[in-house]
Simulated scan of single mutants.
Amino acid sequence: MTAPQADPAATCPIPALKARPALAVLWTPGRTLAPSNRAAMDQFLTSARRLDLDVTIVGEADLDRLAEFDGLFIRDHTRLDDYTHQFALRAAELGLASIDDPLSMRICADKVEQVRLFERHRVPTPKTLLLHRENIGQAIPLLGLPCVVKLPDSSFSRGVCKVECEAEFHARCLQWFDRAPILVAQEYIRTRFDWRIGVLDRRPLFACRYHMVPGHWQVVQNAGSPDYREGLTQAVALSDTPQTVLAAALAAADTVGDGFYGVDVKECGDRPLVLEVNDNPNVDAGHEDALVGSALYDAVMASLARRIRAVCR
């Protein structure tokens, strides 16, 4: 299967809007695990204004102001149990064009739901078992050791554990069953990096290699703590990205929706294996945009402008 190609470096068409639409950008400077650094946010805002969007930065206290706007762009780390989800829900109730939408947030926050979606749509993944107390004995024969155990709401590598032996596996599962009735268990595949494919409007937008933290098995370590570390981010041209990786990423993103996603893919030999789809993917200046520059920001804002035009007709 050949993945459709997008050229984010091409000039983004400026949608013809009857009036200057108002866009709320939910962003809290300095918030832990923010998906964009300040330089990237400056680029997003510049692109929005170039598209004649009337941009206002809003924060947690501004939920009741959403009716003043035509669209919402969320650039805070999204969670279902905080204000970011409340903003997405309110935007949907008001009929605003938004990235992220609440359904995408819900699916991406639930690794169990993603496993079921991937299975239903035949998206290639590592060997996976939805784990509960009654089938715990099936995991090691199926997945081998070491293997990876995840909480359904894991993010930024938190709530994800690599277990090396049977005793550690059972201890971790029994501990986490007190937090969730179903866990995700997967085979461990050692690679030097994970692919991150940015997908927007069901088309690839950017590609990166997220390298593992030196001496660690994940791309980030100690997320949310003062000891936070992350591996090297290496931007790759879409034309240099394996077509099989792009196709797998697009198939996975399609199971979630038509929003803005980051799809994590491992290569096992010549086989792409999807790990997960993330809503609100990281876009940091100097990382994801290293090859395409301002075109990445223009593409996202042009998508929002088109969405606003569609709902404001």
Score class of each variant (00 low, 15 high):
G71W: 03
L72M: 04
D76S: 12
T78F: 04
R79F: 13
R79D: 01
L80K: 06
D81E: 01
D82F: 09
D82C: 02
T84P: 03
T84W: 06
Q86C: 06
Q86S: 09
F87K: 00
F87H: 04
F87S: 06
L89D: 02
L89Q: 01
R90E: 12
A92L: 10
G95Q: 04
A97R: 09
A97F: 05
S98W: 01
S98L: 01
I99V: 13
I99T: 02
D100E: 11
P102F: 07
L103P: 07
L103T: 11
S104W: 08
S104F: 04
S104M: 03
M105P: 04
M105N: 01
I107D: 00
C108Q: 09
C108D: 03
C108E: 06
A109W: 00
A109F: 01
K111W: 09
V112T: 13
E113G: 07
R116H: 00
R116M: 13
L117F: 05
E119I: 03
H121S: 13
R122Q: 15
V123P: 09
L129V: 15
L131H: 02
I136Q: 05
G137H: 12
Q138Y: 06
Q138D: 14
Q138K: 12
A139V: 14
P141G: 12
P141D: 11
L143Y: 08
G144R: 12
L145H: 12
L145K: 09
L145C: 12
V148N: 11
V148F: 14
V149H: 06
K150N: 10
L151T: 12
D153K: 11
S157E: 11
V160E: 02
V160A: 08
C161Y: 10
K162R: 15
E164L: 15
